[in-house]
Nucleic acid binder design. Structure first.
Lengths: 338, 338
DNA sequence: TTGTAGGCGTTATCAA
DNA sequence: TTGATAACGCCTACAA
């Protein structure tokens, strides 16, 4: 069955297509009786306007694009929740794109989005990303972009992030105060803003306590989980003095647990662990994991709000609209004692 | 800057719009030199065709809709990974809709999708759902639907599910073999196919061992996590003989952990727990959680494949295309001993 | 091999 | 208050 369209409604009602369209859009220049008649029939026939015809004519897609590295990750899925809520509230649709941390895919997706398919983009950059020419291209095409969590610092648009530097500092400080002397740092690509800032906080916290920063204690996440675990084990073996681990991403915290278990190291006895994490069940781990928890849902929500402001007012987004939300340190058993 | 369109390319090249269009679509009736010229300019100007104009004309949206109860859930986010992979492979875009288990939202989303916005729908039903008239409506409009995991049994279309009955049976059997005498069952709305089947497996496993099914040992998930935990505690307190819990959804397994902790019950000593779960870190819990793990990624992938077959061949989907994948029982510490 | 013209369904402009 | 018409950008008969 073909979907019903304006023409059919108009025929049935002996009205012009234009009148039917205006009636359905509740225009002031259509009489109430006509509106009622039109709406009655539209309801009866389950009329739904063709969104693409409408988009073409109005030059509005009523759709936003969300580009993220992955979805099987608590941080991003909570952020999507926030985004979806705001989008629905604005009667917008949400297209989702996963880069899988691949810069080439991010490039390709930017191209796809430059065609008018979306009215705006929310993006968290892939760790392999290099520059942001592809995103400048989007902006030139008039498509506003708001970054969340992982940003290109230099790009002049709004970014919704957390206090990564401070959180990195606090995490490290917390380990040191718990009695750690040698703190390893597991982080992500230093191309990423979050990777750099969290590490800077780590370094500063060490420095403030007179500990020299030792680059060989820093590990970057690899391709696979198995690789990561094995490299952590290698580090812990080669550097037996390591008694604290600050993981910059959730996966590296749990990888550290596995590495410790494999090596027979106890947590927090031998090694204390803290990690950025949005795991709901951090408290059920053995031992319960001390976390830096980001307000993931709010990040998504606020980023979307900024985007929709720009879309509805048709204004360029200014970097001044950026927001920095606070993460929370939740102390649990994995950093106890000392 | 306005996006470039066919007309501008045509002007620049002194060709007709039609020729440019055909050249870009690599039609046989355009000379190679012309194709080369057109492509060169299109590349230079970063031309991207307007997808909505194209959709309108071709009556194809190159987009599918994914409707799920929530995204902050390992099962669904892994399924999305599978779906996205297949979609990208087919050069399709993915719209995502979250019902938050609300039937009204599922209704509203079905309406939105009936307008030609998508060429097909992948759906996992909301627990509050009642009937599927809204989805039949979609099908009548020519939009194919494939269900995954949570299905409307009666609707004549393909469903990709897991062996829920058998898994429920095995989970219960496993607890009994580990020495449990009184097994509680935490499940979801019995409107849901998965809720019913898993419970049937539970009942049958009990019956086969001569244990009478006791309805008061079955708890349905509530609105909030706090409510769920408190009801589990209430059950464990009123029925101190309960020595095993079979949780039909991930959240209820971890809720059970919290309830036991709050009551000072030890796992697996006092109570053994098994749960459906896609938690990667089930093994890091205290104690490690025995799980029934669904092939979430494959479920998403297979469901998407069936959908794209129907879309590309323009054929109605038959229930005969349904697939039942196997879940895996992974025994860990939470059901040890006996 | 290329161009002309019409239409996909909707909305905006102008006229009645 | 309503109708006729053109246009959004693209694709495809049909014509040349």
């Amino acid at each position: 069955m073909k979907p019903i369209n304006l023409k059919k409604l108009a025929q049935e009602l002996n009205l012009s297509v234009a009148t039917v369209s205006r009636a359905l859009n509740d225009r002031y220049d259509i009489s109430q009786p006509t509106k009622d008649r039109v709406r009655a029939l539209a309801n009866k026939l389950n009329y739904e306007p063709n969104p693409y015809a409408s988009s073409l004519r109005r030059q509005k897609s009523k759709t936003i694009g969300v580009v993220i590295p992955e979805v099987a990750n608590h941080f991003f899925s909570l952020a999507i929740n926030g985004i979806e809520e705001v989008a629905r509230h604005n009667n917008y649709h949400v297209l989702i794109y996963l880069t899988h941390e691949d810069y080439q895919r991010e490039l390709a997706m930017a191209r796809l989005l430059a065609s008018g398919r979306v009215d705006g983009v929310l993006l968290s950059v892939a760790s392999e990303s290099e520059d942001f020419g592809h995103l400048e291209f989007l902006r030139e095409r008039g498509i506003p972009i708001v970054f969340f969590d992982r940003v290109y610092d230099e790009m002049p648009t709004a970014k919704v992030t957390t206090d990564d530097y401070e959180s990195g500092y606090r995490a490290t400080e917390h380990l040191l105060e718990a009695g750690c002397r040698t703190v390893a740092h597991l982080t992500v690509s230093q191309n990423l803003s979050i990777g750099r800032r969290r590490k800077e906080g780590y370094i500063q916290a060490l420095t403030d306590r007179g500990i020299t920063y030792d680059e060989s204690l820093v590990l970057l996440a690899q391709e696979t989980k198995a690789q990561d675990i094995s490299r952590i084990q290698q580090l812990l073996t080669e550097r037996p003095e390591v008694d604290g681990i600050f993981a910059s991403v959730e996966s590296q915290a749990t990888n550290s647990y596995e590495a410790c278990r494999n090596l027979g190291r106890t947590i927090p006895g031998d090694i204390k662990i803290i990690g950025f994490s949005n795991l709901e069940i951090a408290s059920l781990l053995q031992p319960a994991l001390t976390t830096i928890t980001q307000p993931a849902y709010s990040i998504g929500k606020e980023a979307a709000k900024i985007l929709f402001q720009a879309i509805s007012k048709n204004r360029v987004i200014s970097p001044a609209q950026s927001l920095v939300l606070k993460s929370e340190l939740v102390v649990r058993a994995s950093t106890l004692g000392g």
